[in-house]
Structures are given as C-alpha cells and as structure tokens.
C-alpha cells in the first residue's frame, strides 16, 4: 500500500490514454432493415392476455367440476355443467334477461344520479374553500359507511321499490367518485391550468374543457370503483328486500332460487352477476380508457 502512495511509483502506474489518429468519413448508407422475426407460435399465443386468462378460467371450471363430482350432492354444490345448463335454460326462456334488465335499470338511474352529484360537489370543492371543507367532511364521514347499512333507513323514507334502491346506489357511487375526481382536479399541473386560463376560459367552460380531461385518469378510476360498489350494493340490496317489490332483479332471482333449493340456478345467477361485472370492467371501461387516457399517453 505505502509503495503505491509514494510519488515515484504513482506516476508510473497512472494510466494515460494514447493519442490516436483522427478520421473523417462519409456516413455509411442506411442498412437494409430486416423484417421482424416471428416468434414461435406458442410464444405469440402466450402474449394474448385473454388467452392466458381463459386458460385460468378453464382450469377453475375443471376444478369445480371435479369437486362437485367428489362431493356428490347437487343441493349443496351442483356441478359446473349443471349450473351452465341452468344458466342457458333461464337465459333462453327469458327469466334471467328480464331480471338483469330490471337490475340494470335501477343501476343506471342510481349511477347516473351519483355521477352528477359527485361532479357538482367536486366542482364546488375546486372553486370554493367552503366546498372543499364540505366535500372532505362529508366523504370522511360517509365513505366508510356501508350502503347496505342505510337500507333500513331508505326503506323507511322511500318505501319498498326503486326509490330506496336508487338512494343506496347514489350513496355507494357518490363518495368514492367525488374523492377520486377531487384528487384528479387537484393533480392537474399548474402550467396546464395557467395555459387554460390564458385561453380566456373561465367558470364551467374552464372546468369542462381543461380540468375534466386533464383529470380523466382519476375520474375513470373513480367511475370504475363507483361502478363496482354500485353493482355489489344493488345485488345485496335486492337480496334483502326484492321479495316484496313486484319484479325483482338478479339479486332477487338468486334469493328466490335458494329458497326453493334450486342451487344450480343460484349458481347461474352468481355467474351472471360475475359475467356482467367482467363485461363492464373489461369491455366498457377498457374501451373508454383506450380511446382516451391511453391514447393520450396519460396512463400506461
């Protein structure tokens, strides 16, 4: 060590890059680009997410089938094939579609009202201090409150029927969506806000033309969460009191068939609920995202 530190040796071991001749030359012509090499077929197929996911679904269905066969009690656990048969049967005779439509009708009413209210509340919150305080107080109070817990009260106020369902749906959509929207609005970059005001935009036009599109990733996230909450709440609420309203939805269909011990139909109803959730999540919202925020490079 001390040898290396001594001055004589240090100069000897210190590396010096050699001075090399310079050159200038014309640019090489562009090389021919080769066509993209194709991956082997199984690797290409594996890149499709839907294919991988369907494979998982098939495995689950197989497991279900085996478990049902081993268990051997149709009343407790009907087989996958029996449940699918019941599903196809009740779809073709129109029972499930009519129940689904009745569920959807209530859902859309509640969801739309919740979205409008959330928009009004957040617009207030971004423009005034009082609105901000109102929103944060209300959301922190009411967001943790399960919508179903409000159902008894709703029944008391609005009676049996759509009114009380819509009420709990609004409750389930409003708070998570308002929270997300507000986070989205506050996250809009300052420069973009100034650019918008520079255009001479003010008030509602400023909110609609600048803040809403700029906050769209958060708004869509909020819409998705709100949708999932609303769908769950609706099915649960129908299970509770669908009995007394004239025509029930999917929740009521499940409840009714359980009472009559048509367990395969119960499973058919559950599958329908799941399918519908998947459809909205993976088709509707996915499309919405791809046509907006993904195309604009706001999310990956």
């Amino acid at each position: 060590m001390s040898d290396i530190l001594s001055p004589g040796l240090e100069t000897m071991t210190r590396a010096i890059p050699p001075v090399r001749p310079e050159y200038e030359r014309p640019l090489e012509p562009l090389a021919e680009t080769k066509g993209e090499e194709l991956l082997p077929i199984y690797q290409r197929l594996w890149q499709y997410a839907w294919l991988r996911k369907s494979l998982i679904l098939i495995c689950l269905a197989l497991l279900w089938e085996i478990a049902a066969k081993l268990q051997g009690n149709e009343l407790l656990l009907p087989s996958f094939t029996a449940s699918m048969k019941a599903l196809v049967e009740d779809i073709s005779n129109g029972i499930i579609p009519s129940r689904a439509v009745s569920s959807l009708e209530v859902l859309i009413k509640g969801y739309a009202a919740g979205v409008v209210l959330a928009f009004v509340l957040t617009s207030l919150a971004v423009s005034t201090q009082v609105g901000r305080d109102l929103l944060s107080t209300l959301t922190s109070m009411l967001n943790p409150l399960p919508p179903i817990a409000l159902l008894p009260l709703a029944l008391l106020w609005f009676g049996l029927g759509q009114g009380s369902l819509v009420f709990v749906l609004i409750h389930s959509v409003l708070w998570p969506l308002a929270l997300n929207m507000y986070t989205g609005f506050t996250g809009v970059p300052e420069t973009l806000r100034m650019a918008g005001r520079n255009y001479g935009l003010r008030g509602l036009r400023y909110v609609l033309l600048i803040l809403v599109p700029a906050a769209l990733p958060s708004i869509i996230a909020g819409l998705k969460i709100g949708w999932a909450f609303a769908w769950r709440t609706l099915i649960a609420a129908e299970l509770v009191f669908g009995a007394s309203s004239g025509k029930g939805g999917l929740g009521w269909y499940i409840f009714q068939n359980r009472n009559e011990l048509y367990t395969d139909r119960v499973f058919a109803g559950l599958i329908m609920v799941i399918l519908f959730g998947l459809l909205v999540e993976n088709v509707l919202f996915r499309q919405l995202e791809q046509r907006t925020v993904t195309k604009w490079g706001m999310t990956r």
Binding site: P189, T191, M194, A195, I210, W296, G297, M298
Partner: peptide
C-alpha cells in the same frame, strides 16, 4: 409559452 412540457393539453 412556459418552460414545462405539460403546458400542452395531452388530449
């Protein structure tokens, strides 16, 4: 004209 690139609405 700002310094930041996010002055352009990405949509």
């Amino acid at each position: 004209v700002f310094q930041e690139f996010d002055q352009l609405p990405p949509w």
